[in-house]
Design a protein around this nucleic acid. Structure first.
Lengths: 231, 231
DNA sequence: TCGAAAAGGTGACAAATATCATATATATTT
DNA sequence: AAATATATATGATATTTGTCACCTTTTCGA
């Protein structure tokens, strides 16, 4: 096994709570972790499932969502390289409240919960780091609640594109690196797919967005953010 | 000072993270805390304010909300006896993302952040307990997001009444102990005050709710929960 | 590479919800 | 108790958004 497969050397660790682990703890994690490849569209875990560990995202993006009885799927969060999924369930010792599905091909490490829980009880630095990251997630969740209830669908879609640009960037030609289907965008902002398509078409007609194949790009960021703010 | 004013003897501590503190740590908290009485409608802290500590709710209820530019106020959470407010901001070292306003007369203890932060770095049990409670808050926030985007206003209002009953109970005559104004209920479910009033009137006409003065009571819990589920 | 399936797109219409106006009841102040 | 402010209530209407139907384009597997 090459040394790049050791958590000690894994670069994504710099972005998550694992960076607060001691060398020994990290060694334990590395020895017990299981690497997984997940293809686009595949499920990583399902709502209601009991998680026996957490998933550290090495590459790719996963959508964390909740399905309702009427068949709608609300995406609550997108998890990217460096993020750890399933922490909440492991900490609260509850089944997962969300499903995780790969948005594109992914590389993951599964870390058994025992190692995590042990470290949580022994290493306050690690616990604090997890707490800090979760408090960030909580703030973002609060913001989502306020956005959904106070902004129009058009504002939320405009905001979603700004979010995609600032979080995942754009390529040399100005297209967003992370390509989401219209349905996924609709599920992020909490609207019907048709409404989402309609508004994206409108944005394209107005010269705010451009498209090439499946890719979408932002043409007029200023107007898009004015729109998001409600002007 | 009577012994009931010591955190060591405070009963609300049983419901929050302070129960994981050592005797010494608790003594420190008690020696540095400041008791406050807040009248109904008064602000405890404002969105954007830098918090120098947390607020432990001894009695009463506070609404945690965020104001938008269009004047609407989304209530993200209600904090009750035993809950600690402002933790997120103190932990993340950010200004508060929410405002806290008293829904009824309240008794609070202000605990300077130094004591909290010190304990977070020294006592993993305490940190873990804070983490556990925050992971619960995060789950609830996820649920709110899904509810707001997938359920109708009518469903969410039905749900709000069930929530008020199960969390705050009802008096001998079957009226909800926690009385919220129609505006507050509207701000909890994320709708216009008029829409909220209209639906409550409808519920009363249909025999699902009863009212007496400002008080509201649940008459038909079964139908109300069926309604909340979408039947 | 052909053909099915999925994704993207658009119109017409229905339903849900917000907004505005105005009235009445209730609480609060003086 | 009168005066004022605030909360509740309801109708009329506008706006937003969802739903259904149908079509075109793209993707992907056999």
């Amino acid at each position: 096994m090459g040394s790049e497969n050791r958590c000690e050397n894994c670069i994504v660790r710099q972005f998550n709570s694992l960076r607060a682990m001691s060398k020994d703890e990290l060694k334990q994690v590395s020895d017990s972790k299981i690497s997984k490849s997940v293809r686009k569209g595949e499920a990583i875990f399902e709502e209601g499932e009991k998680l026996n560990g957490v998933f550290c995202v090495r590459d790719g993006v996963s959508k964390l969502s909740k399905l309702s009885s009427n068949g709608k799927d609300q995406i609550v969060k997108l998890a990217t390289k460096g993020e750890v999924m399933g922490q909440r369930s492991v900490i609260a010792e509850e089944t997962s409240n969300l499903s995780a599905v790969a948005v594109n091909d992914m590389e993951l490490c599964f870390i058994p919960k025992e190692v995590i829980v042990n470290t949580l009880h022994k290493n306050p630095g690690f616990t604090f780091e997890v707490l800090r990251l979760m408090s960030h997630d909580l703030r973002e969740a609060d913001d989502v609640i306020v956005n959904i209830s106070q902004k129009t669908v058009k504002q939320r879609i405009a905001e979603a594109f700004l979010y995609l640009k600032s979080n995942y960037g754009e390529d040399a030609d100005g297209y967003l690196v992370l390509t989401l289907s219209r349905e996924d965008i609709a599920n992020v902002v909490g609207t019907a797919t048709e409404s989402c398509i309609r508004i994206i078409s409108e944005f394209k007609k107005k010269g705010l967005l451009k498209s090439s194949g499946k890719k979408l790009g932002i043409l007029d960021e200023k107007k898009l953010s004015e729109l998001a703010e409600g002007f």
